[in-house]
Write a protein that binds this DNA or RNA. Structure first.
Lengths: 221, 221
DNA sequence: CCTACCGATCGGTAGG
DNA sequence: CCTACCGATCGGTAGG
């Protein structure tokens, strides 16, 4: 087995070499929160592909055409930037989940509700440009303890929505394993898709959702 | 929401403050490969709990009572150390898997084979002191491209063993989703357990295996 | 495997 | 948000 010398190259297109200078700003206009949003999106992309520790605040600054010290005008620390990324990801995820469970659908059979929960989760995980939640799943260790416990609260809320649906499926015999451990195993199966799902080729998100439903839940007799 | 200042403290017991001096070495005795093994075990533990980038080679040296430059006498680079950890993890995993599939069991029904595959996988993931595979699952991004492709070969071999068993379960109707995506989803569900499983409280590995079997596979009619 | 060290990089800041 | 900078830390090495 060979032992190569160089760490796999950072995709060059992720990192513009130099700041692009001041962003265009027409007279009297303010940038409002746009620069902050730019930083968040760039940080999410870089944290996802290189990891939190392997991404410098200089990388992030360069990605949005700022100089090295400027991100600290918008965020008081690198870890605060990470927390903002993760927070934004969870808020989007919960909005998407709420849409999946909107009143009209609440009278559907449990399996239809579950299908919509899973489909929404795949959107959140695998939808185009959704780097925020993958960062949350794989980089949260770099958060401070207090940030992590704030995040855990959001995650608990998100996961709690699955329990009544799983209970109904268990009662009908469509779910044959205990509800609590099923929730953990199912969410794990879905979350892991971040590691292997390729939007370009293979399954669509609808097909992936069908496969997950067929794997976890028995057809009703 | 508060924005705390300090990154969550590294558990103090993971990091002895100073080298403990030369390891005891009785007259005429050699350490053979023990020091190398010590480094591997310490690196696995630290990489797992702090991440690769957040662990310095000085941390690893101190954990085994060496001075800062000494790990480079055993490994030519930090990334070579990571690769050795990951390689050792995969070799142990494949040995454990081979045991689960030994000849006497090959005449068992597919569901019994699957149960042993899953149980072996949980041993590999969650058994006491098994930090090597969790490191592989969450830190492989830091490998060089060549190291990563060598690893991918090992992983393919490991996962290939699941396919015939899943095919048999599909043929018998116990597995209702397509084989390929089922393998990906199932392994994801199991791998994610690294994130939440707590050996101290709750389920045993046998109970966890039962739950997984009940979740994924229908009772045979 | 230790000693002593180097060049590079990093998060963060003062002052504007 | 830029300029100019600091102290700390890091992977790695030469020479023994």
């Amino acid at each position: 087995m060979t032992a190569p010398e160089t760490r796999s190259a950072t995709p060059a297109d992720l990192l513009p070499k130099r700041p692009r200078g001041r962003p265009r700003k027409t007279e009297g206009e303010r940038d409002d929160g746009n620069r902050r949003q730019d930083l968040l999106a760039a940080a999410a992309r870089l944290f996802r592909h290189q990891g939190f520790d392997a991404t410098s605040t200089r990388d992030i600054a360069a990605a949005v055409g700022m100089h090295s010290g400027s991100p600290f005008y918008h965020f008081k620390s690198k870890s605060a930037l990470l927390f903002a990324v993760v927070q934004e990801g969870m808020h989007a995820a919960m909005a998407r989940q709420a849409q999946a469970l909107q009143p009209p659908g609440l009278t559907d059979p449990p399996s239809a509700q579950m299908r919509r929960l899973i489909r929404a989760h795949f959107d959140t995980l695998l939808g185009p440009g959704n780097d925020f939640i993958p960062v949350m799943l794989y980089e949260s260790r770099a958060l401070t303890a207090a940030q992590r416990s704030a995040l855990a609260q959001l995650q608990d809320d998100y996961e709690a929505a699955w329990t009544p649906v799983l209970q109904a499926l268990h009662a009908s015999g469509e779910l044959q394993a205990p509800v609590k451990v099923s929730r953990l195993l199912i969410l794990g199966a879905l979350n892991w898709a971040v590691q292997w799902y390729d939007r370009q080729k293979g399954l669509s998100l609808d097909e992936l959702t069908d496969a997950a439903m067929a794997l976890f839940f028995a057809r009703k007799r």
